[in-house]
């Protein structure tokens, strides 16, 4: 099967076959990182721009390493805007980067849908590195990849996603990815942070942590953004942590070989107790390593699709 997408914008629009192809390609890419010389010439002469309108350390670094391991030329463009960035400004910025020779643009933007706007208006290939509360496809794909490597499959697994579902683009990409590949997805959090439409995208809502993680093969903990505690979604961090923080005791109801994941950065003692974060079930650092292989696969497949279109 050939990959025919010039852009990777979200997991909602990818088919199960396309997702599987990304994961298979990432398996081959992983080995490059184990070599003495961690570089292959596949994207020589291709300029990739990382256009970040939100602060990000790990995602941007991971994209940059992936680009460099494929021998692409990398241009980092970071602007942090506190106010809403107007469509015109965003487009002008991106057009400038294209004029400098960038043929792929990795974009993170606080507005949901921003990557789609660029995909429509530009010739470059667009890769969504997180848009608003909407999607974070590379994180979703690396979560799928990490689970598939550990469990040997996705189909039939029980996945619990815990925390601030409402504001989480990771949750949405994970829900689309895992359900497309045949897993059962449950979400849990305070009722204020579990959106009403969640059942429409095939995730089962829970409001009690133990109910959601009972028998779960994978528990994905989301980061609680500390700035949310002032906006009345929950009374206090302490109370949140008491009800929805994962501890060894609460984890007992999950499957025996449960895996705990977190997209990072973790708030120790809030979402996760330290003994879980550092425990045998947690694969948080493995997720980070896998992220490079998955992003390399995304670049390779998008570049190959550019040739055919």
């Amino acid at each position: 099967m050939a990959f025919e997408r010039k852009h990777i914008l979200g997991l909602e629009e990818l088919t199960a076959g396309e997702i599987t192809l990304v994961l298979d390609t990432a398996e081959s890419m992983r080995e490059v990182s184990d070599r003495d010389v961690k570089k292959v010439p596949a994207l020589r002469g291709v300029t990739v721009c990382n256009l970040f309108f939100e602060p990000s350390t790990r995602t941007r670094s991971s994209f940059e390493i992936a680009e460099k391991r494929l021998s692409a030329d990398v241009l980092n463009f970071t602007t942090i805007h506190s106010s809403v960035v107007k469509g015109e400004t965003l487009l002008d910025t991106a057009r400038n980067l294209e004029a400098m020779g960038a043929s792929m643009i990795v974009i993170r933007h606080p507005m949901s849908g921003a990557p789609w706007l660029l995909a429509k208006e530009l010739n470059s290939s667009i890769i969504n590195a997180g848009d608003g509360w909407h999607e974070h496809p590379s994180q979703g794909l690396l979560d799928l990849f990490t689970v598939r490597r550990l469990k040997g499959r996705i189909e039939g697994l029980k996945i619990a996603i815990v925390g601030d579902i409402l504001h989480s683009r990771v949750a949405r990409s994970d829900i689309w990815g895992f359900t497309k590949l045949g897993a059962e997805v449950r979400v849990v959090g305070p009722p204020t942070l579990v959106p009403k439409y969640i059942e429409e995208i095939n995730a089962k809502p829970h409001y009690n942590l133990e109910d959601a993680i009972e028998g779960a093969d994978v528990v994905i903990m989301l980061r609680i953004q500390r700035e949310r505690q002032d906006s009345e979604f929950f009374p206090s961090l302490r109370e949140y942590s008491r009800f929805y923080g994962l501890t060894r005791d609460k984890l007992k109801v999950a499957a025996k070989d449960v895996t705990v994941m977190h997209p990072g950065p973790i708030n120790r003692g809030v979402e996760l107790s330290s003994d879980i974060a550092d425990g045998a079930e947690a694969v948080i650092l493995e997720q980070v390593s896998n992220g490079i292989a998955v992003r390399m696969a995304m670049f390779y497949l998008v570049a190959s699709a550019r040739r055919t279109s």
């Binding site: 050939a2 081959s28 010439p41 596949a42 190959s304 055919t308």
Partner: peptide, 23 residues
């Protein structure tokens, strides 16, 4: 060895081959 990532025709090839494992 899978040599896909080292091919000199990636810039011309219409359809890129699937990358298999190198071990």
């Amino acid at each position: 060895l899978d040599i896909t990532l080292y091919r000199d025709d990636l810039r011309q090839k219409t359809e890129w081959p699937k990358v298999e494992k190198t071990e």
